[in-house]
């Protein structure tokens, strides 16, 4: 079975046709439980997310701030989440909603599981692609071949520090969309969206026709509206995780909070602030 890269492309194009940015949510698999995580992903879609990135938790999440570190810790050390659980999360979320689901993780779990095996199983689960933020384009050829063969997108991250020639090289290798980091730093909510984000989107669009989605630090509808004014998509992660963490073991309330946050953000991406 081929992966759902086309569904991903259609989701972003569809949002654009509606004159709005796409809403991309991030939620780690296995958090707060494996089944609870699946409910949370479905709730994000129900609330209005166009795309969900399912996190494959890692023991050493060096690009994540304290919120996602805490979620990864719960997923791995309390719930003992396995890659099979991550793939089940992708499958059930896709089957229930018909919407594009990506996996976001660090490179070592994929490398260890086997590149071909992981790509094949992710595609079979209905996944649309992968974001691997510590796999630079120079080291990515093996993964990209497998991803292409299985109909999966390879979404690369670009940063404010990326020079124009690197942006060209990275975007030429990527597919689906480009993940533009709004600021220099790890994941986590911020009071304001980095001023560098708009400039990075402009420089990225100058070298590629791929849609450009902005993440890192976006947590509320006002910020989503701000980003939607200059980007093709708005990516929100830690705020969703926090919504669940706030409710502790009260899963129903956590899932409801995810749905409400997605709904608020979905309003945000529909009213770009000029």
């Amino acid at each position: 079975m081929s992966g759902n890269i086309t569904l991903l492309e259609q989701a972003i194009a569809g949002a654009r046709a509606e004159g709005r940015a796409a809403l991309v949510a991030y939620l780690p698999a296995g958090f707060p439980t494996v089944d609870g995580g699946i409910e949370a992903v479905k709730a994000a879609f129900e609330g209005g997310a166009d795309i969900v990135e399912v996190g494959l938790p890692h023991s050493d999440p060096v690009l994540d701030g304290p919120v996602i570190q805490t979620a990864d810790d719960i997923a791995l050390n309390r719930n003992h989440v396995r890659i099979a659980d991550v793939l089940r999360t992708v499958r059930e979320a896709f089957e229930a909603t018909g919407k594009p689901v990506l996996v976001m993780t660090y490179w070592n779990p994929v490398d260890r599981y086997g590149v071909e095996r992981f790509a094949a199983e992710l595609a079979a689960a209905g996944g649309a692609g992968c974001i691997l933020p510590d796999l630079p384009v120079e080291e990515s050829e093996g993964w990209r071949k497998a991803a292409f063969a299985h109909g999966l997108a390879t979404v690369f991250v670009v940063a404010p520090s990326s020079r124009d020639e690197r942006l060209a090289r990275i975007t030429a290798a990527g597919s689906g969309f480009v993940y533009a980091a709004s600021l220099m730093g790890v994941t986590g909510t911020r009071d304001s969206v980095g001023a560098q984000a708009a400039d990075l989107v402009r420089r990225t669009r100058a070298v590629t026709d791929l849609p450009v989605c902005v993440g890192l630090g976006v947590s509320n509808a006002a910020q989503a509206a701000e980003v939607a004014a200059f980007a093709d998509g708005v990516i929100v992660g830690s705020a969703f995780v926090k919504a669940i963490l706030t409710h502790g073991d009260d899963l129903a309330s956590g899932v409801a909070a995810v749905r409400e946050l997605a709904a608020a953000l979905a309003q945000g991406v529909r009213r770009p602030s000029a």
């Binding site: 080291e139 404010p160 520090s161 990326s162 990275i170 980091a181």
Partner: peptide, 19 residues
């Protein structure tokens, strides 16, 4: 490219590549 046989390399986030 920083390889000692099959070992080494540079597996870093894009934000650190320039540095």
């Amino acid at each position: 490219e920083g390889y000692f046989g099959v070992f080494g390399g540079k597996f870093i986030p894009e934000a650190l590549v320039a540095a």
